[in-house]
């Protein structure tokens, strides 16, 4: 590098390039890389290598105890005909379709309410956030107790309004709605994100809309929603990815040693099936193939959301 810079023959090289190679620039680069080095090591060992190895494992039969044997695309062929894969994908999709819109709408409604609450907003914001601190395992316990079909508090409250509540935790048709409902309990962090976005909406826009005679609903639709569409999109995407990877609440409530009294099929979400195949059945090759399918599905869904968002999301000034 230095010799090239010294040689006049390398004249066409732009001057900026020579400056980058200067000793002080090199020192700065080396110092920067030194600070970043933990992440580089971690990326190579815990991200890059696992991705490659997982791709390889997905083409093998591997039970940890004996060496992996190469089986080509057999795992993927098996997935195509495995009824449990279809069931788990379908369950996960159903849950996502129920949970994500419900969750985003509730988060938005709560944020809009808080935005009208003046000084007391801080208190209520805290109250809505606290449940988010509950460990998901305990949320699973609360699900089984509060949504119990016979004795649960939820059905007792519904009974007050004359509604005969369903068997949320045992009726296959109601397991996913029950999980979606209890997920609303943890909506607090998304409310905080949306509320922060609402507070960034310039007051002049509302004043202008008021002058034009726009009512609350019209102001919300034409000013608020477009101005916070970036945050709404963020909450939607993050929550969709999380819904596709639903594991802990469902697993702690409906799976595990000795838990056979429930019809688990309705709660067999994709990551639960992957986990059981990998770590209970020790089908590491097959589970790796399952992981890749999940990866592709999540990427596709996120890509679709991105494309749709191009038309719906308004970013003021700069992108991102």
């Amino acid at each position: 590098m230095t010799s090239a810079a010294a040689a006049p023959a390398a004249a066409p090289a732009p001057p900026s390039r020579r400056r980058r190679a200067s000793p002080s620039a090199r020192r700065e680069r080396n110092a920067g890389l030194r600070f970043i080095s933990p992440w580089i090591v971690g990326f190579l060992v815990f991200t890059a290598w696992p991705i490659l190895y997982s791709a390889y494992l997905s083409l093998t039969d591997y039970d940890v105890l004996t060496d992996p044997t190469f089986v080509g695309t057999e795992n993927y062929e098996r997935m195509a005909t495995d009824p449990k894969v279809r069931l788990a994908l379908w369950n996960t999709l159903q849950y996502t379709i129920i949970q994500v819109p419900l969750y985003v709408v509730v988060a938005l409604a709560l944020a809009l309410l808080l935005n009208q609450a003046g000084r007391s907003a801080g208190f209520f914001r805290t109250a809505f956030f606290i449940p988010k601190m509950t460990p998901p395992v305990a949320v699973g316990v609360l699900l089984l107790l509060l949504f119990n079909g016979q004795y649960g508090l939820v059905n007792e409250v519904l009974g007050v309004f004359g509604i005969d509540g369903p068997s949320w935790t045992t009726d296959a048709a109601w397991i996913k709605p029950g999980l979606a409902l209890i997920s609303l309990w943890s909506v607090g962090s998304s409310v905080i994100i949306l509320l922060a976005a609402l507070r960034d909406v310039p007051a002049e826009l509302y004043d202008a809309a008021r002058v034009d005679g726009a009512g609350w609903w019209r102001r919300t639709r034409t000013v608020t929603l477009p101005m916070i569409s970036g945050a709404l999109f963020f909450v939607t995407v993050v929550n969709t990815i999380a819904a596709f990877q639903m594991f802990t609440e469902a697993y702690s409530a409906y799976f595990g040693a000795g838990n056979s009294t429930y019809s688990n099929d309705a709660a067999l979400f994709y990551v639960i099936y992957l986990f059981r195949e990998g770590f209970e059945q020790l089908h590491m090759g097959y589970a790796s193939a399952l992981a890749w399918l999940l990866f592709v599905v999540i990427m596709l869904v996120t890509a679709v959301q991105l494309v749709v968002s191009r038309r719906l999301v308004y970013y003021e000034g700069e992108q991102r």
């Binding site: 992440w39 990326f43 060992v45 815990f46 991200t47 290598w49 696992p50 991705i51 190895y53 997982s54 494992l57 940890v64 990815i241 596709f244 990877q245 990551v271 992957l274 990998g278 770590f279 590491m284 589970a287 790796s288 399952l290 992981a291 890749w292 999940l294 990866f295 999540i298 990427m299 996120t302």
Partner: peptide
């Protein structure tokens, strides 16, 4: 760095266990 945030944990779960 940002791209790794998009990676579902399920993909690296098994190889990481093997490490």
């Amino acid at each position: 760095v940002l791209a790794t945030m998009m990676l579902p944990g399920a993909v690296t779960l098994i190889p990481t266990f093997l490490i």
